Amino acid sequence: MERLSDVLFSGSQTEFLLEIFIRTFIMFLLVLLVLRLLGRRGVRQLTLFEMAMIISLGSAAGDPMFQDDLPISYAVIVFMTVVLLYKGITWIVMKYRPMEKMLEGAALTVVQDGMFALEEDRDLTFSKMEFFSELRNLSVEHLGQVREGVLEVDGTLSVLFYEPSQVRFGLALFPSRYREISGYHGPGPFACMFCGKVIKEIPVGKECPRCSRNRWALAMNTQRV
């Protein structure tokens, strides 16, 4: 118990504990004020550039909260500089499209015509399972229901669906149906578990004619509920 007390309070000064409370309270209000001035954004709407800015603000706010040799005025100067930089860079981004792409990236097509877009695959930082999870959250049962899916710069997924009458066979997204078939000789169609290509019969050699992979699952064509 004495050891725990040493870990928690060793070397602490009682009068400085109150100062830490006051400093933390002030810095917290300053952070809220700055974020309010920068505009309303949800966490999922933040771009990479905005995340870097918030991390900078957090770093600048943290030290003055408990270091008595750092006046709060230093943090205020840092905040003002970050806000000016943010406003300036935002203006530049609005004027010059290449700068926006460099700082924030570009939207990527993930699903096209019920299949994964192979040409964008090398640029993706998400795993297929993460995309499956995002699509499942949108009540998508299989890729055949999706006409186009785009990964936005803020990490969200935007989806256009086929009309019910146009739903095609596609790769299942739920674990109960996303299962590799082995030695299966029943009727198809079948979907490539990598790219979502659907074929009526598994070809000789079992390689997908689109991506050259060789893992297959039964395709499905249920409509969205």
Rank of each mutant, 00 (worst) to 15 (best):
L84K: 01
S5C: 13
V150I: 12
A107F: 04
L17E: 05
G149P: 13
L32Y: 06
F126W: 14
L108I: 06
T109R: 04
E148H: 02
K197Q: 15
M129C: 11
V7N: 09
A217Q: 01
H142P: 05
A217T: 00
I55R: 03
D69Y: 08
R224H: 02
F174N: 07
R213D: 15
P189K: 03
F49Q: 06
D6A: 11
S133Q: 14
P71W: 06
E15L: 08
F194N: 15
C195R: 04
F190L: 05
T222S: 11
A172Y: 03
E120I: 02
R179W: 00
K197R: 13
R23K: 10
R179A: 07
S5V: 14
S59H: 13
R23V: 11
M51P: 06
L70V: 15
S10M: 05
D154T: 08
I181P: 09
L57D: 01
M99I: 14
K87S: 11
T125N: 03
V43S: 13
E201K: 14
R23L: 11
G62F: 01
T47S: 14
V83H: 03
M80Y: 13
E134K: 15
E130K: 10
L135H: 01
F131W: 02
Q145H: 06
M94K: 13
S158G: 03
R177L: 08
S127F: 12
I54S: 08
F16H: 11
R215A: 13
S73Q: 13
N137L: 12
R224I: 08
Q112T: 11
I181W: 02
L35D: 09
P164A: 06
D121W: 12
P64K: 05
D154A: 02
L8D: 05
Q67L: 08
E120M: 07
C192Y: 04
K95P: 00
T156H: 10
Q112A: 07
D123M: 14
L37N: 04
I20C: 11
I72N: 10
G183D: 03
M99W: 00
L173N: 05
L46K: 04
V140C: 09
E119D: 15
S139G: 00
M51I: 13
S10H: 14
F116M: 07
V34F: 07
I72F: 08
C211W: 09
L57C: 10
L84W: 07
A106F: 00
D123R: 14
R179P: 00
L138V: 00
L138A: 09
G149T: 02
R44Q: 10
L4V: 12
V225Q: 10
P64Q: 02
G11Y: 07
F25Q: 09
G58T: 07
Q112P: 04
V198G: 00
P98I: 01
A52V: 05
L35N: 12
E50M: 12
G144I: 00
T81K: 12
I72D: 02
T156G: 09
K128V: 09
R136A: 04
S165Y: 13
L157V: 03
